[in-house]
Computed example of a mutant assay.
Amino acid sequence: MSNENLVQARGLSLRYGSKTAVDNIGFSIPKGRVVGLLGHNGAGKTSLMKALVGLMPAQGELQVLGLDPLRQREQLLSGLSYIPDVAVLPRWARVDELIRLMSGLQPNFSADRARALLKRTSVGPRDKVKTLSKGMVTQLHLALVAAIDSRLMILDEPTLGLDVMSRKGFYEMLIDEWCDGERSVLISTHQVEEIETLLSDVMMLDEGRLVLNISLEEIDSRFVALSHDPAAAEAVAAAHPLLRYRQQGQAMALFDGAPPLQVEALGRRMRPSLVDLFMALTRKPEIQPSAQV
């Protein structure tokens, strides 16, 4: 594995019996990146994250921090942090008790850093978990995990069920207090619009296949969204865009690469959003009718 890559996968497949959850994918995650892992429910996101933290056997090549996640899991966890989609903390425990517990369990955990992070929240050291709101529990969990001196953080739907302000606070703490240009974060989420500005890269899974693995800078140079008048719809459709849709009442078309010059002259180039790309590259029947102009 390259010294720059914290994760390296080649020909990676994950299976539950006869069901294939992830199908022969390859990717790498260098240091200093914030990677969004996007996909519909059942696309293979959680299975992939479980494999990365050594909770699921894999076929193919997989190294995380230069280690085999399954065979060297104990060593791996000293340099990796993980928040699953259902974060559970003991309801009876006080916050200061959890900090002491983490100090005894995780050698790379800093109690002082955890206390400093919690000062950014409304969670007090004497509060019991059972008295905290769901948003406060999530902030507590992030503070405990972010206080571990690790190189890679994996977050599986970390803000599921939280309100907008709680989600915003969670991501602000993550970016401000943990990301430092050397560590990397892999985030699985359905709140694509909210995290797009935080990301450096995006990976999209569709039914176990990796349909996009790209930096946000490359998205700007590769994909083109074209707004156009309804009268030009037939000519635009003839150029075979990835997706035709409406945005704020405006007819739009999304192309992989620059559209033909005669078609581009019919509209105005715009930057496609991750949501647009997600709709174009993942094929769920329930979203396709609304995507047509």
Score class of each variant (00 low, 15 high):
103 S>F: 02
1 M>Q: 06
179 C>I: 14
83 I>T: 00
161 G>V: 03
192 V>D: 03
49 M>K: 03
56 M>Y: 11
215 S>I: 04
21 A>C: 04
163 D>W: 06
267 G>W: 03
110 S>I: 00
109 F>A: 08
252 M>S: 05
104 G>Q: 11
165 M>C: 00
195 I>M: 02
113 R>P: 05
12 L>H: 00
168 K>I: 11
166 S>F: 04
79 G>D: 10
1 M>E: 06
44 G>T: 04
6 L>G: 05
37 L>Y: 09
8 Q>T: 13
24 N>S: 14
230 P>E: 08
288 Q>K: 15
219 I>N: 03
73 R>K: 13
146 A>D: 07
198 L>W: 06
281 L>H: 05
238 A>G: 02
282 T>W: 03
220 D>L: 11
85 D>N: 10
134 K>C: 01
42 G>R: 05
161 G>F: 01
189 T>W: 06
43 A>R: 00
187 I>K: 01
285 P>Y: 05
140 L>F: 10
269 R>D: 03
199 L>C: 08
59 Q>E: 15
102 M>A: 15
14 L>E: 03
236 V>H: 06
170 F>S: 03
26 G>F: 06
227 S>P: 02
13 S>W: 09
203 M>S: 04
170 F>V: 05
2 S>T: 12
189 T>D: 04
7 V>G: 00
240 H>Q: 12
226 L>Y: 00
221 S>R: 14
11 G>Y: 12
125 P>G: 04
75 Q>A: 15
205 L>T: 10
223 F>L: 06
242 L>G: 06
216 L>M: 12
14 L>P: 11
271 R>W: 04
138 T>V: 14
258 A>V: 14
86 V>W: 02
245 Y>G: 03
212 L>Y: 02
231 A>M: 12
234 E>I: 12
259 P>H: 07
126 R>Y: 10
83 I>A: 04
84 P>L: 07
156 D>M: 04
205 L>A: 11
170 F>K: 00
138 T>D: 06
69 P>M: 11
278 F>K: 09
120 R>A: 12
238 A>W: 00
219 I>T: 02
228 H>V: 09
188 S>Q: 05
28 S>A: 15
96 D>V: 02
179 C>E: 04
247 Q>H: 13
91 R>M: 11
49 M>E: 04
175 I>G: 01
115 R>M: 10
208 G>I: 05
183 R>K: 05
